[in-house]
Design a protein around this nucleic acid. Sequence first.
DNA 1: ATCCGCCGTCTTGTATACAAAAATCTTGAC
DNA 2: GTCAAGATTTTTGTATACAAGACGGCGGAT
Lengths: 224, 224
Amino acid sequence: MSENIFYKLRDDIENGIVTGAFEPGERLDETQLATRFGVSRTPIREALMQLSAIGLVEIRPRRGAIVVDPAPQRVYEMFEVMAELEGMAGALAARRHTEEDSAALLAAHEKCREAAVSEDTDRYYYENEIFHRAIYAASRSGFLEEQCTTLHRRLRPYRRLQLRVRNRMKVSFKEHGEIVEAVLSGDADRAREGLRSHVAVQGDRFGDLVANLSNRERRSGRLG
Amino acid sequence: MSENIFYKLRDDIENGIVTGAFEPGERLDETQLATRFGVSRTPIREALMQLSAIGLVEIRPRRGAIVVDPAPQRVYEMFEVMAELEGMAGALAARRHTEEDSAALLAAHEKCREAAVSEDTDRYYYENEIFHRAIYAASRSGFLEEQCTTLHRRLRPYRRLQLRVRNRMKVSFKEHGEIVEAVLSGDADRAREGLRSHVAVQGDRFGDLVANLSNRERRSGRLG
DNA sequence: ATCCGCCGTCTTGTATACAAAAATCTTGAC
DNA sequence: GTCAAGATTTTTGTATACAAGACGGCGGAT
């Protein structure tokens, strides 16, 4: 089981980034990481190279790697694309879902309900992820599923912040219900629209997002 | 100027892959590449790690890297997603394009016309790429532009094959005209639809694609 | 003759070494 | 006291070394 340390390292560091253990803008010292994980610098560098290729860290020549810190504008753009891709997944899912897809989607929806009624945001956050994954899978497009999963993962920290907003969880669950209905009844257009607006950062939510982002920046002591 | 060899190596190898110098399924020997580029294995490995992260090569533990060889199904799915993203870029471009965007788009369109009337598929292939980049830029979404550029690049070899199909170039140019008109007149829906159907692999084109893919496979001596 | 297993070779994965650039500290001048 | 230039330390980028797994060939058994 000692196969390919750099895979594990990549996942560990990526996880640290999307969960916030490594903060945006933080410098990732190779030697330090090497000691921490008990390996040499070589596999650490290989992991960082992979993360830089998917845009999670930035490698500045001769000056080391830092966790990327996207501007609010950029985060908004990422949600914009995510909304479109999820809408597409919903439309495809409505047309192509199998029996197992339906079962998985309903099961995930039920878990979300439990989390929502018990007002457990952490649990809802977790079950919500499974719900969305069920949609991607039901699209029956492996490539789309991959793209969605990757982007979903990268937006994790921001989504988590968003859920904390008052009432967002209940609204979210209600939207899920409409999405489930549209997908199961094979209504591609409604599924697309449902998911697009569910994911998009519109109206008040845009303000919430920007506010959260600047809070974070103030906390980590950059920005005036 | 001897800074960061692995960037150059990554671009060189990536280029070799999308232009077909390295064939799908081909094994990329680290030592061999190192000798060829006159460097040690270390930067070669770092370049391969990056390419594996974006899905261009596959690293099998202890068995080296190979150029990924997506199944026809997967290539179709990639075009499907590309169509959606380009449609989105078109819709955003229609709403957000600036004066410079219009100028760039018209200029690119004119170059495509020249290539089309002189029936120069190679040149059209090149100008077409610039045309599509102009759309991405006009969307005024840096993230979307990046996603589109990356995917466009990965689909390069297949697009090139497609252009060779009889009359495809002239049809393509005509579709460009409609897209330009929709974008410049600010008609987001028409721009989206125009680009979606322009990029999508539908009807006859699906058969052409599959035929081309299996030709390639037969040529490289795999498959029965 | 064919198939299985063993041994040697080759290749990968990780560690270490070393040079060069960047960051930091020190010292001296104003 | 502050700033700048040089020296020192740290850190990155690349090369090399070495161990362990994968591949291929050879020989023996059936």
